[in-house]
Design a protein around this nucleic acid. Sequence first.
DNA 1: TTGTAAGCGTTATCAC
DNA 2: GTGATAACGCTTACAA
Lengths: 366, 366
Amino acid sequence: MVVISLSQLFHCHFQEGSVTQASIQAVAREAGVSVSTVSRAFAKPDLVLPETRERVMAAAEKLNYRISRSAAALKSGQSFRIALLLSESIVTWFNSRIYAGLDSVFHPAGYDISVFSMTNADERRNFFTDLPVRRNVDAVVVSSFNIEPDESRKLKSMNVPIVGINIPSNNGFDAGVSIDDHAAEHIAVDHLVALGHHRIAYIGYDEMDDRSALRYSASARLQGFMDACNSYPGVTPMPLSLDHAGDPANAVLNCIISASPAPSAVCLCDDELAIPALFRLRQYGRRIPQDLSLIGFDDNLYAPSLGLTTLHQDPYAMGAKAAQKTLALISSDSKHPSAAAEPRFETPQVQLMLRETTAPYVDPDA
Amino acid sequence: MVVISLSQLFHCHFQEGSVTQASIQAVAREAGVSVSTVSRAFAKPDLVLPETRERVMAAAEKLNYRISRSAAALKSGQSFRIALLLSESIVTWFNSRIYAGLDSVFHPAGYDISVFSMTNADERRNFFTDLPVRRNVDAVVVSSFNIEPDESRKLKSMNVPIVGINIPSNNGFDAGVSIDDHAAEHIAVDHLVALGHHRIAYIGYDEMDDRSALRYSASARLQGFMDACNSYPGVTPMPLSLDHAGDPANAVLNCIISASPAPSAVCLCDDELAIPALFRLRQYGRRIPQDLSLIGFDDNLYAPSLGLTTLHQDPYAMGAKAAQKTLALISSDSKHPSAAAEPRFETPQVQLMLRETTAPYVDPDA
DNA sequence: TTGTAAGCGTTATCAC
DNA sequence: GTGATAACGCTTACAA
């Protein structure tokens, strides 16, 4: 009678590494070194002899070993997790690119991004009351969020770097990357005035319809538009606003048709609004740019091929830059308190992309 | 001389909880219970007396205590991290919605999503060779990825649930949510044929230009189109393809202009292509739908307000559903091997959205 | 229902 | 440059 014990049966399975996940102990044994050496070989490769490192890596490879991020996180006191605060869903043109830009830097550095999107006042209040991220993230990135002073004070209490993207003020932030919405609209108005336009409309969403939206950008753009128009004698700004609900294309059409006197040029708060507007206006016989000039904001996916004149911003680059600043702050936090990547705050340029939706003013009565 | 010790100096700071992060020990002390009770109060609230729980929660609140996710993860053996494999950037219409749908389920459940987007063959090979997620994720979600048999075998070796979204085959997956691209194009063709069209073009990207793209969806759609046309006697399918490079609007325009005989209807592989096409074709005098019918795919953000007739899919819902299946698999894994949410594989319906870019065929010579 | 105590798999502090 | 060992902050048998 042949007796085979369970451990004998399973021995080969364990050897093959397909069932059990090898720990650092096993790798140390396999490589004939101590666990500390294995740890160093992964975390601080230059502290071990190249030859030793090779042996460790070979053993790790053989056993299909990977460092446990949880254990490393626990011991090192970091969580390797970054909180990203959004005031809208991640599916928007802007937010998805911010995420991708952040991830392009954070992911290779071993950090995960935990997204908190607060789309209404309740979610927002709960977040700042509970502060669920406390002690569980190494930094907070706040994007396009019209954060209030006591909210940013609450974040500060977590003692981790707070980095802002397109935020109203640098106050309460350790670093930031924000475009100048106000100045950007000024560029648009300058262009239209240079073309001879003097009745210029601005169309955005009604600011009051949800309090947590990226209200800052919206109001800064409108304000920039107003200030720019008012800096030119004879130019009449016509601020119009839309309900968030309903078909944006129709809303813009109605808005423009019912404006009196009729504007000869329109700045739209973003391309997401400008594109349906361009479409519908042409469909209803308005020639663009001959009868009406149009300027968008963002330079999104469709703007180039539709020939939309618009203000260009690059949220992917902004996200990447913000992530770099964040990592610099995280590492400086522990060692050299002042070695963070300078400058801490940056303002990327917004560029007017001249395409086919603006043209010189022509007097319709002439 | 007054001597004040450091600990005296800092005492009040620690009390206020603003500098040091309280651990579970401190909460236990504050609440007058053991650490296990504190742990249970958070993780398994129904295992402690309501009264005790209250005391614990009050103490935790007072000390600003939050569970350390790293420590909980280490001890429990889970990582509370999900890998999401993408074959394109997360910024696409489809992927950003998949992410948002997954996150809507994973985030509340305490899981983070770690995105791995493989946009070229190198990245893809490295990922499957290294398998950096091994031992560090609780599940893998694969989205719109034309995964190969030996790749899915490698994933299987990790012993965590593998869930697919819009994948070519359920083989190697524990659960999945995929639309039927083939059947969807059949619906589009049925519609056009019913309108009297018989020279119908399909425009997609050249499949060969990057091997890692979501080739499966692309080829399945084309195949569905071909099969559908061929099922109707007298209907001529005209498969055309585009370079990925250059302005899509111009590419589509050229493609259609140079096709001979001229098609009376066109199916486009997605709305991202259909929208610039619609725009440019109208700009160049082609009346749509009178001269040419157009059908897109996706029903994206702009399709409704542009009046684009298109095939509707809902990636957000697919992501949410996939996440639910994933969580079911994770918890069944440890306990009841068969209690996973049934059915494990689902095929959401794709719906034709009839709008304003298709019309009955009119003989141009009549 | 609650407490005691033994780890989970790393990293860090020492020696050597 | 490398090795022994003590944490890190939780969870979970098991005991009470």
